[in-house]
Design a protein around this nucleic acid. Structure first.
Length: 513
DNA sequence: AACGGAATCC
DNA sequence: GGATTCCGTT
């Protein structure tokens, strides 16, 4: 009986964050209707009260340590009303995030994982870019300061200068809805906690966005309505010193570059939405909004969108419509049927254990209904045995570089140099993303100021890469394959950096929801 | 401890 | 689809 386990628990008025009702609806969270583990983790991470249980790892961007695995598991179990939860199970769930590139393991460090923020948030906060100063506050993820919080990536590739300061996060309900969960860890933080962070409470600005949007859209309660255009654009915080605003969005409308981003807190940061869901219906940007923007931001956004569409074979429909926008032809399309429903299958059904057993024992089936006729595709392990263990070497030094490049630097270069894209069919070069915006200066959107040629000379893996199952591709990309990373850095994967706060915000929101 | 396959649940 | 559960392996 999960009677007491309500998933949607709106924060009572006052302390919590007020999102419009729709934000709390299950539909707002495609994929999973309940809080997701990574949300939960972030949620814990943003609360000082749990610092002894789980905390950001100092010195590593997005890295966190589970100090008390059992307790984390317990909390998670309580949240999910799974009393039997333990770290083993929880960690299994975390491990599933590896392939999704939401998380990866910091090898050599016990109970230490690392969020892949850059890939996580980008679709939702394409312009967010936080510096990888390497300074990670104790109780909070690397929080960009008011001055560095959000950058417009391509324009800011210089090395950061430790101006990241610890942010503090207001807490929302972390409370489990389970009946027995009344006490202990579930409390709200004092207002003082909410107040003083200069860069801290930014996510409260989220409050404005959905609600204002609901109003401005005029279609309250119909978020599914297709907007004319949906672009999450953010402005520089300094311009709008609204302490409550995550994106420094002033509640005062009408400023250039300000956009009311209608992000469902629950939905917006579900990474799978973007990465694996070509459906425009599930697009994070599917809510209506009125906004203004500046061309520069627009360029970046469009560019990244274009790249995303390209890189992931997303439906072109995911590309925001914009007058004058020229979406480069997707020449890397697959067969029509495929492309229409393209999605990265992270966990393709492998030959099951049953099959394995059957092969071995040549009969025997303990389960009820059994695949009497399940064609067993013999699985080919394509993955090259890169048996090096660069961890010890890489860990402290190189990883930071990675972060700097991965997170901070937004690769605005195009697929151009990718020649044959990772995924794909050799497509004649897709020249720079052409984005034309009315009343804009000549575009040089695509040039990376650094122009690092991280290009692999040989790139022998590409073909192989293309043949490789998506799962493996991703795996390669994220696990330990520096080459793969290099490849991705060189333009295969074009993501904007993003801040963990965004996630934390979402986590909070989701948690509250 | 960490990984990942497999089945299952919701 | 996202866990949860179980478990063999490294």
């Amino acid at each position: 009986m999960k009677a007491g386990c309500s998933i949607v628990e709106k924060p009572e008025g006052g302390g919590g964050y007020q999102f419009p009702d729709w934000a709390y609806k299950a539909e707002s969270s495609p994929g999973s209707r309940q809080i997701q583990l990574w949300h939960f983790i972030l949620e814990l991470l943003q609360k000082e009260e749990f610092r002894h249980v789980i905390a950001w790892q100092q010195g590593e961007y997005g890295e966190f340590v589970i100090k008390d695995p059992d307790e984390v598991a317990r909390l998670w179990g309580r949240r999910k009303c799974k009393p039997q939860m333990n770290y083993d199970k929880l960690s299994r769930a975390l491990r599933y995030y590896y392939n999704k590139r939401i998380l990866h393991k910091t090898k050599g460090k016990r109970f230490t994982y690392k969020f892949n923020f850059s890939k996580l948030v980008m679709p939702n906060y394409p312009f967010i870019n936080i510096r990888s100063s390497g300074v990670v506050p104790q109780s909070a993820p690397p929080v960009p300061t008011a001055s560095s919080r959000f950058h417009f990536p391509p324009l800011d590739t210089h090395s950061p200068t430790g101006d990241v300061q610890p942010g503090r996060f207001s807490a929302s309900s972390l409370s489990a809805s389970c009946p027995e969960s009344g006490g202990a860890a579930d409390r709200k933080v004092e207002p003082s906690d909410l107040e003083d962070g200069s860069a801290s409470d930014w996510h409260r600005g989220m409050d404005f966005m959905p609600s204002r949007n609901a109003l401005s859209g005029g279609v309250i309660g119909h978020q599914k309505r297709k907007p004319d255009i949906m672009l999450p654009l953010f402005t520089r915080p300094a311009m709008y010193p609204d302490p409550h605003s995550p994106f420094a969005l002033s509640p005062v409308p009408g400023r250039g570059g300000v956009l009311n981003v209608p992000i469902s807190p629950a939905l917006s940061l579900t990474p799978t939405m973007f990465s694996y869901s070509p459906s425009p219906g599930l697009s994070p940007f599917t809510s209506s909004s009125c906004f203004s923007f500046n061309p520069e931001e627009m360029k970046h956004y469009l560019h990244s969108q274009a790249c995303s569409v390209f890189n992931y074979h997303l439906s072109p429909r995911t590309f925001p419509r914009y007058p004058g926008l020229m979406v480069p032809p997707l020449q890397c399309q697959m067969h029509p049927e495929e492309s229409s429903q393209f999605s990265i299958k992270l966990q393709p059904p492998p030959a099951g254990r049953k099959n394995r057993e059957r092969v071995e024992s040549s009969e025997e089936t303990t389960r009820g209904s059994v695949p009497a006729s399940t064609p067993i595709p013999s699985r080919i392990k394509v993955e090259p045995a890169t048996e090096k263990d660069p961890d010890s070497l890489r860990q402290s030094t190189q990883e930071k570089e990675e972060q700097a490049q991965e997170v901070d630097t937004v690769q605005t270069r195009t697929i151009e140099e990718g020649k044959g894209t990772v995924f794909a069919h050799p497509s004649p070069t897709w020249p720079s993303v052409s984005i034309s915006i009315p009343s804009d200066e000549p575009l040089e959107v695509t040039e990376d100021s650094e122009d690092r040629s991280a290009r692999e000379p040989g790139v022998p893996e590409k073909k192989e890469d293309a043949l490789m199952p998506p799962k493996l591709r991703l795996k390669r990309r994220w696990n330990d394959d520096p080459e793969a990373r290099e490849l991705s850095k060189s333009g295969k994967f074009l993501w904007n950096g993003a801040g963990p706060q965004g996630l934390a915000t979402a986590a909070t929101a989701a948690a509250d929801a």
